[in-house]
């Protein structure tokens, strides 16, 4: 049996609907016989009548509705058609869901699925990675699964968590990534994973950039260096201890993310290591992000805008020489 990252997301939702009557899915085109723009809810409306509901094109109201339902004991999953459109719902996510527990002592258990990241030809408005923006605000958990197994177990965890979860699933991984089977249990949320053990340099990454980093690490292994690759799994909470432990072994740090360069997850990793583990570093840390422009349409431009295994390998070589 072979299962893709996208199928894992569908299977997780099927399991959640089967096991927990509080769960329902709310989003554009998720219901009926259509099953979502990417088919992440294919067949679920038929299998679970009345619990997989199409909505108007109203991102703000989709999330608002989910918040209200969660306050009454439900566990809604909101599917944004693309992460980019969640900007319309920023107010509900950041100001309503994100502040609610702090203000009222009552948590808002909603899960917002964001089909994130770039794919060829998708352009400025269907390619964004918004994890850094959501992580900046208090009150939210931000998940960035990079493997089929994590896509499955972390979505199940997201719904179980009593707080609002922004679940960033990467569209590039939907069909590219396959696993033999789905796990019955995953690693605890909030813990990073050593995706590849090494001793010469730590690459900290997440989501689709983990896969690019692993390719880069294999490339450089041919040159005699062993790179340790850390998969953050959640950018918030950020597993600082795991990152510091790895840097303690390697003395060198490269943080790689697909979101825009100003601030964000990679900057946070660098800031934490330099403030809390400066003595561990043998060289200045580095980071790689997408370019500080909107995401381009043409594949030639897009493949340069987005960090690639080639760019990561080049930066890693530079760090290893220092």
């Amino acid at each position: 049996m072979s299962i893709t990252y996208l199928e894992a997301i569908r299977e997780a939702q099927a399991k959640l609907l089967r096991d927990d009557k509080r769960v329902f899915i709310y989003g554009q085109d998720v219901g009926g016989t259509f099953g979502g723009a990417f088919k992440a809810t294919k067949g679920l409306a038929k299998e679970f009548p009345g619990r997989v509901l199409n909505t108007p094109i109203s991102e703000d109201a989709m999330v608002g509705t989910a918040i209200g339902a969660a306050l009454e004991g439900m566990r809604p999953i909101v599917e944004m058609q693309f992460a980019d459109f969640s900007s319309i719902a920023l107010n509900q996510i950041l100001n309503n869901a994100g502040t609610h527990y702090w203000r009222t002592n009552i948590s808002v258990p909603i899960t917002i699925r964001l089909p994130s990241g770039g794919t060829k030809g998708s352009g400025p408005f269907h390619s964004q990675s918004m994890e850094s923006l959501y992580a900046h605000y208090p009150g939210l958990i931000v998940m960035t699964p990079a493997t089929v197994e994590d896509a499955y177990t972390m979505l199940i965890d997201a719904v179980a968590i009593d707080d609002p979860v922004v679940y960033c699933e990467h569209k590039y991984l939907y069909y590219h990534l396959k696993a033999d089977d789905l796990p019955s249990e995953g690693m605890p949320i909030g813990r990073a994973r050593i995706a590849r053990a090494g001793r010469d340099l730590t690459i900290v990454s997440y989501s689709a950039m983990l896969q690019e980093s692993l390719i880069a690490a294999e490339e450089i292994a041919k040159e005699g260096f062993e790179i340790e690759v850390i998969d953050l799994r959640t950018v918030k909470p950020l597993d600082t201890a795991a990152v510091l432990a790895s840097v303690a072994r390697t003395g060198r740090l490269l943080a790689v993310g697909e979101s825009f360069p100003w601030g964000g997850a990679t900057a946070e990793v660098i800031a934490r290591v330099t403030t809390e583990g400066f003595h561990l570093l043998d060289a200045a840390p580095a980071r790689i992000n997408a370019k500080d422009t909107p995401i381009p349409y043409h594949p030639n431009l897009w493949s340069t805008h987005r960090p690639s295994s080639k760019v990561i390998a080049a930066k890693a070589r530079q760090l290893l020489r220092e």
Partner: peptide, 25 residues
């Protein structure tokens, strides 16, 4: 008694969700 946020109109859909949940339950 829902706790309003300052951003106007935001509570309408929240209330809709509460009512949907009540009906569903």
């Amino acid at each position: 008694q829902l706790a309003m946020i300052s951003h106007l109109g935001a509570m309408i859909s929240v209330l809709v969700g509460s009512l949907m949940a009540k009906r569903g339950q």
